[in-house]
Structures are given as C-alpha cells and as structure tokens.
C-alpha cells in the first residue's frame, strides 16, 4: 500500500508540470486534445502484427517532452507503472499464436510474439501520449477542452471528480491500511475478514470525505461549471499545431517509413 500511496502522490506532480510556461503549455487545450486523439487513433488502428511502422511515432512524445520541458525520466517512470497491465493483456498471445512469421537465421519468431510486442509498444505510445497531455495541460484543462469540443458538461464534471476521487481514495486507503498494519502483529489481523471490513469502511469514509470536499467547492460558488485561468483562443497557432501533427500521423499511418528507408537503402546498395 505504501508503494501505491507513493506512486499516486508522485502522480499528483504531473498536474504541477502543467503549470509550466512554455509555448506548448500556452496552446489552447483543445488543440492538444485533438492531436492526442489523432495520435492514439493512428497508433491503435494498425493491424495486430504491425511493429516496425510504430517506431516513427515515438517522434511525437520525444518532441513534445522536449518542447514542453517535461522531465523524461519522470515521464518514463509513469509509463512503466502502467506497463504490467499491458503485458497482462498480451502475455498469452505467444501461446495461442505460434505460427512462425519471421525467420531470423535459425530462429523463428512466431506471430504471437510479434503481436505481444506490438501491444506493448502501442501501450507505451498511447499511455505516453495521454500522460504527456496531462503534463502539458492539466486535468481540469483537459476536461474543459472536452466540454468545449462537445462532450456533455455532466460527463466532463464526472471525469474531473473521478480524477480527484482517485487521490481521495488512495489517501484514505493508505491511512486505513497503515492503521491495520500497525495493529496487526504478524499474520493475525491481516485476514480476509479484516480486509473486507477495511474495504467497506474505506468506501464510506471516502464518501464522507468527498462530500466534505464537495461542500467546500459549493461554498466557493461551484455551480457545476469549472473555469481554468486565462480563457484561451483557438487561433492560428493552434490550427497550425493540429494540422502539422495530424498530417505527420496520417502520413506515418499510411506509409511504413522504416520499410521505405530500408527499400531505398537496399536499392542504393544493389
């Protein structure tokens, strides 16, 4: 639990990165949300054995992190945190799909391994893009942008509350779990029975806490709408940002660049 607690607290720092003052931070959130969506759709829409064509897409996270001054090591750490989940999804592919697709000398690589690697690379790319989006825009900004792009306000507010609730839940959970560990000497007290009671208490406690937070929000004039600092305009810079990146993603999606370079090099050598 201490591990999760620390990880979540660390995750909160992501919102702090969004207070940066680079040109990318200053862009209207809608532009960044649209580009991220186009990026994710491009990456996800490849067929399941595609691997090489995915690599050029790393240019987007690399450029955005550099322009937005995001710490690469920290961002990589956040992505690694999600990787086990991707692996859990893909780990059975090599078992089910054993047909050899690539012959590297004496080694045959089965389709299962390729699709497994493809799932992992795709999750690194998509999760990375999402985390970079939060780091450059902040979660409230993203919710606001989604609302401006036509998502019903109720959903946008729900999303924002869900995000806040994660932190409330883990904070309370961390405290409850610490109290239990300190009073359970050795194995006793760590039984399933005490665990179920802990979980149910956790639900009620976070509920009460969430209610108090909501109360504090209402007391400060919250009416279901949220506002984010300076209202930004979707202007020429935003349009340029969206068009350039979308064009790059679509080109990369339609044309396998590594393969193309390979063919050109081979042709020059022959």
């Amino acid at each position: 639990m201490r591990y999760i607690d620390g990880a979540v607290r660390d995750f909160k720092n992501l919102d702090l990165l969004a207070t940066g003052e680079t040109a990318i931070h200053r862009l209207d959130a809608r532009a960044k949300v649209i580009v991220t969506l186009v990026f994710i759709i491009s990456v996800v829409s490849f067929n399941k054995y595609e691997l090489t064509a995915l690599f050029p897409f790393f240019i987007y996270p690399a450029v955005m992190m550099a322009l937005g001054n995001l710490p690469a090591g920290y961002m990589a750490g956040k992505i690694v945190f999600v990787l086990p989940f991707a692996l859990a999804v893909a780990i059975f592919n090599p078992l089910f799909d054993q047909q050899v697709m690539i012959q590297l000398g004496p080694f045959g690589i089965s389709g299962g391994w390729i699709s497994c690697a493809s799932v992992v690379v795709r999750s690194i790319l998509t999760v990375g893009a999402a985390i970079i989006l939060v780091g450059l825009t902040g979660f409230p900004g993203i919710c606001k942008a989604l609302e401006q792009l036509g998502m019903p306000q109720v959903f946008a507010v729900q999303l924002l509350f869900l995000y806040r609730y994660i932190f409330v839940l883990t904070e309370e959970g961390g405290r409850a779990s610490r109290a239990r560990e300190l009073r359970s000497f050795g194995e006793k007290g760590l039984s399933l029975a005490s665990y179920t009671s802990l979980i149910s208490h956790l639900l009620l406690r976070t509920w009460q806490r969430a209610e108090r937070i909501h109360m504090a929000m209402l007391a400060r004039g919250f009416t279901g709408e949220f506002h984010t600092g300076q209202p930004k305009q979707f202007g020429g810079r935003e349009l340029f940002f969206v068009i350039v990146w979308s064009a790059i993603f679509i080109a990369l999606r339609l044309q396998n660049i590594p393969q193309l370079i390979g063919t050109i090099v081979m042709r020059m050598l022959s």
Binding site: L16, R209, R212, I213, A216, M217, F222, G229
Partner: peptide
C-alpha cells in the same frame, strides 16, 4: 478538505473564477 486544486494559486483562484 478545502484545498483540492493542484497548486495554492489554483485553489485560491477557484472561488473568484466561479
């Protein structure tokens, strides 16, 4: 319970923005 935004500035600005 009262401080729920990412930074102190955001938190203090929450009311005036509303």
């Amino acid at each position: 319970d009262q401080l729920f935004m990412p930074t102190v500035y955001d938190d203090v600005a929450f009311g005036p923005l509303n």
